[in-house]
């Protein structure tokens, strides 16, 4: 279990990015974090990844305190961040350096087949499309079989069609080993398609605002009325998190802070 206990972060420049964020996330659960700009979503994810240390509170995974990157936690960024000097296959095998060459080759070949890029094994990253590159990044993060996979707006740079494709693909891959997924997103659709739980955050300082359980069976139909219903609930929560339901908020909402997307 991933336990976040009153996690807070104040940057050295005084920006109070995150305040007392607590959540318990079960193994295999998919959690989406959504919220306006500057609500500390990425800060939270980086603290869980061990890339930045929380200034207050603790992140624990199976009773291990996370203060630095951990083998059981993988992360996928908004950009693929592939190493341009390694072939696609070597990029996927990057985190497997302690394995023997043969074992590594086998795992990489499996992963390549799983993301449908076997024919690109020897290609350079520059030869991939955006969607293909992000698939390689997903494979690279999944191949060491992390217990928790963090995703920081992983599909936001892709076109709508590729994004849908990769969302379905991600669920498919998740089904193999059922790791915990923790996904930061701007996209309400994406949150409702993927998550068991949507955590809505509010900004300045970033904190948990509302939790919405999405108890829809998978695979989820993006066009069903239930789906729409959950989307509306998340949107309403987002609006309230930005104080947009206040009747006299019209003047304020044009000031840009209501532009949560």
């Amino acid at each position: 279990m991933l336990a976040l206990d009153r996690v807070g972060k104040t940057y050295p420049n005084g920006v109070h990015a995150l305040e007392r964020f607590s959540a318990d996330i079960k193994l295999g659960e998919i959690v989406a974090i959504i919220g306006g700009s500057g609500c500390g979503k990425s800060t939270l994810l980086r603290a869980i990844a061990g890339l930045d240390r929380a200034t207050t509170g603790t992140v624990t995974l199976d009773d291990i305190a996370i203060t630095a990157p951990h083998a059981k936690i993988g992360i996928i960024f908004q950009e693929p961040r592939l190493l341009p000097w390694l072939s696609v296959a070597d990029n996927i095998g990057f985190g497997l350096s302690e394995l023997s060459a043969a074992a590594r080759r086998e795992k990489v070949a499996q992963a390549l087949a799983r993301v449908g890029l076997t024919d690109k094994a020897n290609a350079w990253p520059r030869e991939l499309s955006g969607g293909q590159a992000q698939r390689v990044a997903i494979a690279r993060a999944l191949v060491p079989q992390p217990e928790v996979l963090l995703l920081d707006e992983p599909f936001s740079a892709l076109d709508a069609f590729t994004r849908r494709d990769l969302q379905d693909h991600l669920l498919d891959l998740w089904n193999d080993t059922r790791p915990t997924l923790m996904l930061v997103t701007h996209d309400v659709d994406e949150a409702v398609v993927l998550a068991d739980r949507v955590l809505v955050m509010r900004p300045r300082p970033g904190r948990l605002f509302e939790e919405i359980k999405v108890n829809l069976a998978r695979p989820r139909d993006r066009n069903s009325p239930h789906f729409d219903n959950f989307k509306r609930r998340v949107l309403t929560a987002l609006d309230r998190s930005l104080d947009r339901n206040v009747p006299d908020a019209d003047a304020k909402s044009t000031a840009g802070e209501a532009m949560w997307w």
Binding site: A49, P69, A71, G74, I75, R81, L83, F94
Partner: peptide
């Protein structure tokens, strides 16, 4: 820095 972060997430030692 983003590429260096990839190295950090895979817990590379200094020499690695």
């Amino acid at each position: 820095r983003k590429i260096v972060e990839v190295g950090r997430t895979f817990r590379l030692s200094g020499p690695a």
